[in-house]
Design a protein around this nucleic acid. Structure first.
Length: 642
RNA sequence: GCCGGUGUAGCUCAGUCGGUAGAGCAACUGAUUUGUAAUCAGUAGGUCGCGGGUUCGAGUCCCGCCGCCGGCCCCA
């Protein structure tokens, strides 16, 4: 009689199994055929394992089937191996490096001279799916570092050997190899039971990527792909991709006539009248919220002598990201467009002596900033060279930090709710590389944490991810189709006040050092607008819409009345247009819908006689004829700032 | 910056083997005056991203540059 172990399942039930029994066998024997068939991998206590892993002691067991996101991730990792196998068969001499999964799918980086062409990808995808069809089992094997090194050295896999050396230097004793067919990779696992379970592999793109992300290292050829357990899931994913494409802010920006780019100003947008309206609405809204929350608005220069950047420390580290300007008197590039507002705010603060009674001092600014981003990183409105932040710096005492953070979170919550963005927060603590002693960091982290805890906000702690000058809280939003974006931030800075020798006079009549809080809610207007365009798919709520209502006439004889309606709306402060083109009513309504305007006001004989409009909402809801005053009341409510 | 892809009318796109550039929509003109998602007809619109080269001849082939798109942290 062999030894028994107790296996505890997620529902709390316990089974007695033979010691050394494989997870897969256990599932088949104790749970059922169906689950055994659908199983991809399992979690044994706190470790993700293959189904072939023997159960050696009393454990908790959770099985992941093709229905779970965890299993899909494992299958995508299987797919990465399969693709690498296919690549090495089709292109002998290609070296493998790493092939992890990403949020959506996986990639594998290869080292070879020539990049993959789109035709190569087709061939690789076809062969990869053949390997899937062969349903080859994945086999796990534990080996010594020496054996693994010998294996990959014999194959000429220099990158794998380097990875093995690294892993060993970090203390790993036994290494694991995963094999399917006759292809072996050095891999932590887990993997699914066989290639057949992967389902279907789709290759998406290829691109260059530096070994370990460092441009001094060799360039690798990366292949991105994604796998699904069945073709239907792939089709659905492809469909979702198409839908996301329709929301692309670059496409909608052109179609809705919001902004454009020109080769003469890479990374800097031309805002049309409509785009400018959107920009200005967001700007005015934020300005008003801040002014209502004790901020004062200030403006500082756009162009600075390098002295400021030497003082702030940016001249050394950040110089290559700044646009330097030639001073024709000295012939030197001693001036720079500001890439951020903070240093100039510090200068402004330092202009006068502050009393403790003045604190907190809250400066807000929406000045234009320039950052010389590498040309290859530019894209749409989300990565630009010229932009404006809803920037503010709060100068306060350490004791005031929790209250300031609490107020900020409150403000941010209001703004994100106003546009319907869900958000989560992250608290980042002291990094390895930092300025300031531990006692200072202890206090700084404690005050941010206290503020977060009292706000009732759920947050994730990111140890070591704070800025070198202080801990921070970041806010990630999810848009209407679930994409995540990092937007708001509040960062504590106890270095800048030192550098700029900032002070206030305390109750004790002595000089004290304030702390600085850097904070933003939109992040940058440009990026925030991009996110809103995609979030609303271009159909903005009335308070944001560049055109809130367009008047369309049934016939030309109503144009005069239509113009009166437009003028009345404008006189009441609304953004209204009249479509005077000689098109049919249907054509003008269609145009207004395509432009996603909140209200289309139809006017004909009936309306002209009774002083009415017949509003139609975006989407088609017909509100029937109503007095113009009644519509103005409706619009006043819907267009009110939230 | 680096790797790959890409660039034809305002927009979306076609253009075969290298033989002198085309459609739909938009714009403009005219006719029509329509009650909730495209009325009809006509007109105009192009240094085929820019610059070189090959050729009798280049949107098409070659080279360089620029812009745009996808990537360049996810460490077996």
């Amino acid at each position: 009689m062999s030894e028994q172990v107790t296996v505890t399942l997620p529902d709390g039930s316990q089974k007695q199994a033979r010691k050394g029994m494989r997870v897969g066998e256990f599932v088949r024997e104790f749970i059922g055929q169906g689950l055994a068939k659908a199983a991809i991998h399992a979690r044994l206590d706190d470790q993700d394992v293959d189904l072939s892993r023997p159960i050696e002691r009393d454990s908790r067991l959770k099985v992941y089937t093709t229905k779970s996101a965890e299993a899909l991730e494992v299958a995508n990792h299987d797919a990465a191996h399969i693709v690498a196998d296919a690549v090495q068969r089709l292109f002998p001499g290609t070296q493998v490096t790493i092939g992890p999964t990403v949020e959506e799918g996986f990639y594998y980086d290869f080292f070879r001279e020539t990049p993959f062409t789109p035709e190569d990808l087709e061939k690789i995808e076809a062969l990869a799916n053949e390997i899937v069809a062969k349903d080859l089992p994945f086999e796990r094997r534990e080996v010594s570092a020496e054996e693994a090194t010998r294996l990959f050295e014999s194959k000429g896999e220099k990158f794998k050997v380097e990875i093995i050396r690294d892993v060993v230097s970090k203390g790993a004793k036994t290494l694991t190899l995963y094999k399917h067919g006759d292809w072996t990779d050095f891999c932590l696992g887990p993997h699914g039971p066989s290639t057949g379970k992967v389902g279907v592999i789709k290759l998406l793109s290829s691109s260059g990527a530096y070994w370990r992300g460092d441009h001094r290292n060799p360039m690798l050829q990366r292949i991105y792909g994604i796998s699904f357990f069945d073709k239907k899931a792939l089709a659905e994913w492809l469909h979702r991709q198409e839908e996301a494409k329709k929301r692309d802010h670059r496409k909608l920006g052109r179609e809705l006539d919001l902004f454009q780019f020109h080769p003469w100003a890479p990374g800097a947008a031309f805002w049309s009248a409509k785009g400018t309206s959107l920009y200005q609405t967001l700007s005015a809204y934020m300005r008003q919220l801040c002014l209502g929350n004790g901020y004062v608005e200030v403006k500082t220069p756009l162009l600075f002598n390098k002295g400021l950047w030497e003082k702030s420390g940016h001249w050394g580290k950040y110089k290559e990201n700044m646009f330097l300007v030639l001073d024709s008197e000295t012939g030197e590039h001693d001036f720079s467009l500001k890439p951020m507002n903070c240093p100039s705010h510090h200068v402004l603060y330092g202009f006068k002596k502050h009393s403790y009674r003045d604190l907190p001092v809250r400066y807000q600014t929406q000045d234009v900033l320039h950052r010389n981003e590498a040309s290859g990183t530019l894209g749409g409105l989300t990565r630009v060279r010229q932009f404006a932040q809803d920037d503010a710096h709060i100068y306060c005492t350490e004791a005031q930090i929790p209250e300031e953070v609490r107020r900020f979170v409150h403000l941010l919550d209001r703004v994100y709710k106003a546009v319907g963005l869900q958000y989560t927060s992250k608290f980042s603590t002291r990094p390895a590389n930092r300025l300031g002693d531990d006692e200072l960091w202890d206090r700084a982290e404690a005050s941010l944490k206290a503020a977060l805890d009292s706000s009732g906000l759920a947050y994730e702690t990111k140890p070591g991810e704070g800025a070198f000058y202080g801990p921070k809280i970041d806010f990630d939003v999810s848009d209407s189709i679930g994409r995540k974006w990092q937007l708001g931030t509040i960062q504590l800075d106890h270095v800048a006040p030192e550098r700029f020798d900032l002070s206030y006079v305390g109750e004790d009549n002595a000089e004290h050092r304030p702390v600085v809080l850097h904070r933003a809610i939109y992040g940058s207007f440009e990026r925030f607008i991009a996110i809103l365009i995609e979030h609303f798919a271009g159909a903005f709520p009335a308070w944001l819409a560049p055109v809130q209502a367009v008047v369309v006439t049934v016939a030309d004889r109503h144009l005069e009345y239509g113009a009166r309606v437009r003028e009345e709306l404008r006189a009441r402060g609304f953004r209204a247009e009249l479509d005077e083109r000689g098109m049919t009513l249907n054509a003008k309504i269609r145009e207004a819908q395509v432009q996603k305007l909140p209200f289309t006001l139809v006017v004909g004989d009936k309306e002209a006689e009774s002083g009415s409009v017949a509003p139609r909402r975006y989407g088609g809801e017909d509100l029937k004829s109503m007095k113009l005053e009644a519509f103005i009341e409706l619009l006043s409510k819907e267009a009110a700032w939230p």
